[in-house]
Structures are given as structure tokens and as C-alpha cells.
Simulated scan of single mutants.
Amino acid sequence: MTPWQNAWQQALYGPDGFYRRPEGPAGHFRTAAHAAPGELAGALARLASRLGAGTIVDVGAGRGELLTALVPSGVRLWGVDVVERPPGLPPAIGWAQGLDALPDQAFDGSLVIAWELLDVIPLTVAELDESCSPSIVLVEPRTGREQPGGAPEPEELAWRATWWPGGEEGDRVEVGLARDLFWRDLVHRARTTGARAALCVDYAHTAGNRPAQGSLSGFRNGREVPPRPDGSMDVTAHVAIDAVAAATGLPHEITTQAEALAALGVTDTELLDPGGLGGFAWLLHTF
């Protein structure tokens, strides 16, 4: 048995992890970039223009589907993911295997986007015991069988007290500290190297509507399945978007994808569906 966060990290990003598989994420689920890439690309190009951004940096770019749709827009393009440059990617698109490989100059004058990325940054899963104290949930990767472990780290307990307090015995808490730190560091780097804005788009919740049993899910071959960190499926959990936003200490705007895309002239009904893709949160920082 191992903590969910560790097993999840290995299952998605280890040497044989899900996100390194040749079919890529598009082989298992649809994002907005797969649903209507042309219309979405047009909206992002208009957003970049409004922000004065001549470059779009896509962090967690998959196999470059959204960037490929953006090529006709004429903006400079960079993609970042855990895999090497995908075969057949248009030469106009720059590519980095990991953020460490992305040159700082790529951020200059850019709109940085993280599209459905934070939900697959592994986090600590905890369950409340009979005294309503959280215990780390351990998992057996091969079967998905679980059992309680020890207490979370002090900084995770502090996060929980601020962002996911309360609850009853048996309730779950998905401690989003790792996501807060990832977004804080990405935004800080982008801002200090000349970016114009940073946009996070994801499944999300805020204080007052946290899911009592958490939101940990698995997706494989287009279907939602019980989560199991064995590398055969995507493993995801919704994002505490208010905590992510606050972690940067910077001004921000949070709206829904439906509202944001409608304001950018999008008419595609799937992208605007408030019960589906349109219900995603848009978190935007402008610098």
C-alpha cells in the first residue's frame, strides 16, 4: 500500500505512465480542445490579442492538438508536456519536454495556458476518522484497494483547515497544496519573464461546494471508471480553484468556461454547455 499521491504520480508520469502512452490523452477522453479545436483556437487567439500577447504557451499540451489548431492565427506557439515532440507537429510550434526545458524567452509577451492540467496533478487524498481527523488514504495500485494510513503533513493539515474544513466521519478531503504550489511557481516564472497573462481552465469547486466524498475519478477508453493507479487509465480530481487562485497572491478573475467563451464569440453548444465543458472554471491572472 502507498499514499494515493505517490501511486497517482507513478501511474500518470512514471516511465510507463498513462501520459506517456503513444495514443495520448485523446485516446481516452475529450477535452474542449478535442471537441471544437477550431472555434476554441479562434477564441484564444482573440483573447491573446486583447491582452497584447503575441505568444501562447500551452503547459500540458498533450500531443499539440490545440496548438495545431492555433497555427493559422499567426501567434507564436510553444507546447510543454512530459513527452518528446510529437511526430508531425507543425514546425511553427516550439516544444519542450518538461517545464525545465522551456526557455524563459518563450514566456516573453505570452498568454500562458494550463488547460485541464491541474486536475491531473496528484494530491493527497485523506479520509476523516471517527474523531473527524484526516488520515491519508493508502492504495494498492494493481487493485485500487484502499486502507487508512497516517496523518497528513503539517502544511497539508493547515491547507485543509483553511480550504476544506469541517466534514463528518467517512468524508474525504483532497488536499490541493501540490496544485497551489505548481500554479504559484508557474505564474511567478511567467510574470517575471515577461508574460502578459496566465489562464487555468479546469473542473473545479470552491468553498461551500466541496464534494463530501471527493471527486477522484478514472477515465479509460472514453468511459468513467473506478480510479485505479495502475497506469491503464487517467486519474483525475477536481480543482479547489479558489485555493489555487489565492496561492499566487495576485489579482485574478474566476468565471465559467461558458461565460468566458461566449464573451469571446464562441457559439459551439458543447463548449458552452453549463452541465458539461461550459461548467469548467476559468481562472485568469493579467500582469
Rank of each mutant, 00 (worst) to 15 (best):
D129R: 09
Q213A: 14
A195K: 06
T256A: 00
Q9K: 14
A178Y: 08
L102G: 02
E65K: 05
Q147G: 11
S133T: 15
V201H: 03
A48F: 05
R160M: 14
T286D: 06
R196S: 05
L99E: 15
Q10N: 13
E253I: 07
G265M: 05
W282H: 12
R228P: 08
D242V: 10
L67N: 02
L186A: 09
R85T: 02
T55I: 11
G88H: 07
G249P: 13
T143I: 13
L118P: 01
L138E: 03
H34A: 13
G208Q: 06
E153F: 14
H188K: 11
G79E: 09
H28L: 01
L261A: 02
T269Q: 13
L261I: 02
V75I: 12
F107S: 04
A178F: 08
L128N: 08
I241A: 08
G249I: 11
L99Q: 12
A101I: 09
L138Y: 12
G231P: 04
W282I: 12
V201Q: 10
G166Q: 10
P86F: 12
P86H: 13
P229T: 15
P72T: 11
V75M: 10
V137F: 01
R220F: 07
R20V: 00
P211K: 07
V57L: 10
P154D: 09
G74T: 15
Q257M: 08
S217T: 14
L66A: 00
V112N: 01
V71E: 06
V137S: 01
P3G: 11
R20I: 00
V235C: 14
H188P: 06
W163R: 07
A43N: 03
A43K: 02
S215H: 05
E116A: 04
C200E: 07
G79D: 05
P152E: 08
R50C: 10
D185R: 15
P37C: 06
G14P: 01
P25T: 01
